[in-house]
Computed example of a mutant assay.
Amino acid sequence: MKRQLAKNETSSSVISIVPTEGARSCWDKLSRSTLSAPVIALVAAILGLQLFAARFSETVGGAWDRDLLLRLNSFAATDSLYVWELANNSLFRGFPIFFSILALWFAGDDRERRSRMLTGFVAVCLATVLSVWTQFHFATHIRPLLDPALPLNVADPRWSLDWDRRDSFPSDTSTLFFALATLILIENRLVGLLCFLWVAVIIAVPRVIFGWHYPSDVAGSLVLGPACVLLFYATPYPRALFERMLIRLRDHMYIVHALLFIFLSDASMLFVSLQKLGKDLVRLLGWPH
């Protein structure tokens, strides 16, 4: 009799813990409905932040922006062109960033850390796309080296010959690298701070010195890149999604590593191939751009 009662109690407890198929489907629907709100809020927050930054740069970025640009540009000259070539060399400027990312990725088989990093990579892509999109669709200010009214020292006159984006806010290169530095900072504070310093000195400031961007363009990228990464990190759904993906691919991690290599190789070249593919698709489909 006691055995029968114990068996009944065990079976009833199992039934109470394990949901039925109907309950599980209801739970899935509820999860999707509750998770959609944070995702929508995340996208709206990023777009709103970028719109505000563009309008702020357009209205406030006036005399101080121009004065600081000219002051920094006074250091540019024809004989300093090697400085620009070094700062714009993909291997030199990107080595500390991509080395740190790969070191963090392969520092043990930590699924949670890798899911966070994958979430950060998506945020980096979104931040870069938004920065390029803003240059096309928001008339903030013309790129300094294309503005004949500015008395700039242009180290190479060929820079002003061929441009498809005449507006320069924000700096898409700085956005990309500030976002990657934020990703590193979240995983390792000391290395992340050093990467932030590297991006500011080696990548961002030279783009102002040589007239490619206004200081407000770099300030906008310093807001946009880290904000996208931090907002994505604050939303649990992307991390949970990538963690489930890593669990399913635990016996085929070479696929993930190969995709990571492709992502980092294109990111090191500022997603030039991806940008060209997007432009070709826009022309092919006849969409306005």
Rank of each mutant, 00 (worst) to 15 (best):
R116L: 10
A103Q: 13
Q135I: 02
D162G: 07
R114P: 01
C125F: 09
E112Y: 11
T128Q: 01
A155V: 11
Q135F: 03
P144L: 05
P96L: 15
V124L: 00
N89I: 14
L145D: 04
P151A: 11
D167G: 07
R158Y: 09
D167P: 00
G94R: 15
E112W: 13
F106Q: 00
A139V: 14
R93V: 08
L161G: 13
L152A: 05
S160K: 12
E112T: 12
M117G: 03
V132E: 02
L118Q: 11
W105Y: 07
P144S: 07
N153E: 07
V122D: 06
T134K: 04
L130F: 04
D162F: 12
F92K: 10
F95P: 07
D110H: 09
V124Q: 00
L104N: 08
P157T: 14
A103E: 11
H141W: 12
L91A: 15
T134C: 09
S131D: 02
F136S: 05
G94V: 11
V122L: 13
L146I: 06
Q135G: 03
S131V: 04
H141N: 09
A127D: 01
A103D: 10
N153G: 01
D167L: 11
V124P: 00
I97M: 13
A155Y: 12
T140A: 11
F136Y: 10
P144Y: 07
P157D: 08
T128L: 01
W105I: 05
D147F: 00
S131C: 03
P148I: 02
N89F: 07
F138M: 06
V129H: 02
R143N: 01
N153F: 09
A127N: 01
M117F: 11
Q135E: 05
G94M: 13
V124F: 04
